[in-house]
Amino acid sequence: MVWSDQRIQKLAENFVPVADEVYMLYPEDPYNLERVKDEPAHQLFKRFGESMPKGDWNHPGTKQGIYLMGPDGEYLEGRFAAGSDPKDIAQRIERALERWEKLRKDKKYANKAVPAVGEQLPPDVAGKPMVLRVSLRDLKSLDKPSATPRWREGAFDDGAWAGFMQWAWNQNWIAFDEPQRWIPRGDDEHKLPDELVRKLCREVLVDNVRGQAPPWDDEQVEHAELRVRRVGRGTPWLLAYSGEARMKHGERGYEASLLGEAEWDPARKEFVRFELVALGMRRGAAQFNQRENDKGPKPMGVALRLYRPAPKSR
């Protein structure tokens, strides 16, 4: 993968690196384009794109890609739909840096060091008291964890969609405002509040391994139950979770078993560890989740882990 390439990681240190969704920055449909046309972010990106060489900017059409620009959107390099060839991207970044050297002298840009930042969370979960990182992927089987296909350099054709489909995985996030609602009220196992479990099912037990898929509507959650019990009497509390979920809409569905383990600090009223895994069969296709030729039923796993900020590495 391009961003795993150490040469590219080194070159990237010269830039403010940003990843973001393109559609609302430069919508392809007239309604949304009209809505954002006066926004400074859209105007800067549009101005940048229109200064690119023919063929590197895609208009009309998707603006997905990798772009290198000065602080005011000055063209340095880039290409739409770029991203699978590390050699090409490294060469583009090097050309961008050559152009940057001239630009920064001409415009007297300060060129201060880019500060370290920790991993940035999506705005809708950042700062919440219980944030879970969600990882999901296709599985080869439901009886052999070690059979899970993983990306390795040279193992797949990284330039082909078929290569990506063999190892695809995705990451999402979910947050909860009241962590204490996830702990048991007494010594016996009991069901967690329905609304918590249904929120989890609606938002993240969704097949977006390969592409975008909408959350489930509440009425499409046919069954959602998660039970919790305390294991032993130690501190922090050791908690065990188990449950089942079934979502269905037309031919599209996901039916899974869930099992989890967590540690709760009763003094600080917060989780110090939370892990939950769902395994089951996905079926059907959403409009944009790239399943039209692979409707299953096939196995898919979803793992949720408490987010803990990592130490800064740069």
């Binding site: 961003w3 990681q9 990237a12 010269n14 830039f15 403010v16 690196p17 940003v18 990843a19 973001d20 969704e21 393109v22 920055l25 400074p40 972010a41 800067l44 990106f45 603006k63 997905q64 890609g65 990798i66 772009y67 290198l68 620009m69 000065g70 602080p71 005011d72 959107g73 340095l76 880039g78 991203g83 970044i93 961008a96 840096l97 940057w100 630009l103 920064r104 840009y109 300060a110 060129n111 201060k112 060091a113 880019v114 370290a116 930042v117 920790g118 991993e119 940035q120 969370l121 999506p122 705005p123 740069r314």
Partner: peptide, 25 residues
């Protein structure tokens, strides 16, 4: 790579630093 996750705040940061932007979208 220390990815920023929103385009416009990253542009403003680049302006403050006088640095170029690497944008993956």
């Amino acid at each position: 790579i220390p990815w920023r996750n929103q385009f416009w705040p990253a542009v403003q940061e680049a302006r403050e630093l006088g640095r170029p932007i690497l944008f993956w979208t």
